[in-house]
Amino acid sequence: MSYDAETIKKLNEMAKTLRRDVVEMVGPGQAGHFGGSFSSAELITALYFSKMHYDPKNPKLADRDRFLLSKGHVAVIQYAAMARAGYFPVEELSTLKKIGSRLQGHPDVKKLPGIEANTGSLGQGLSIALGISLGLKLDNLPSRVYVLIGDGELDEGQIWEGAMAAANFKADNLVAIVDRNRIQATDFTAKRMDSGDIPAKWAAFGWNVIEIDGHDMEAVLAAYDEAETVKGKPTVIIANTVKGKGLSFAENTAAYHNGTLTEELYAKALEELK
């Protein structure tokens, strides 16, 4: 499927809107996961505003596609996408992390309709997504399951248990997306735990591997489309991204993995994301 320039432009604008929502939601003086949210903005935008089949008015729609945020710490960008998609009013974003808010620091399935699972204890989202994909197959549902994983998260052993199992069960309704921003909580992944040749590792585990520029909207959409055509094995999209993408001062640094904006930087961020 090809996408016209207008569609791509609109999606790119939406990605920018989500980034701005995140900045406003977190606000100045509070720590927020800007880095990993911004690296995955296009990946999430393409799912919620083009690829996925769902109904925000009926979050339990049986044949909906599922999205799981294994790197649950960037819940803020998923909340922005869900609000813009119509799951809840955009104004509710301002309740983030307030006592009693449905918008918890990590996604909570019991609190917010549209969230598919409690994730964020890293390394577990892929396995959960596999369970959903097996359940969908038992029910002969055509739905697809997307799970976004951080590249730092690949340190977790359970990722590789899940990878082995998904290939074993030929879970071709499952798509893993690795947000390869090359920075984990405290430093570059290569310095903290060098995960080596990531595409080769997934291929060796029996996955169909697609490598893209994770900020190129057309490439992101094409990857999701290609994944749909692959039968008999799951697909992983290795999305090369930039941590903090879109904010000049937050790009490619671990400082804004979970960083705090001063009043000055907050204003600068909103200016840059106009």
Binding site: A117, S127, L130, Q158
Partner: peptide, 19 residues
Amino acid sequence: GIAEANMASTAAGLALAGK
């Protein structure tokens, strides 16, 4: 297989899919 952690999370997914 011999992978209890993955088993438990996969079961969570199956439960989320109504099983």
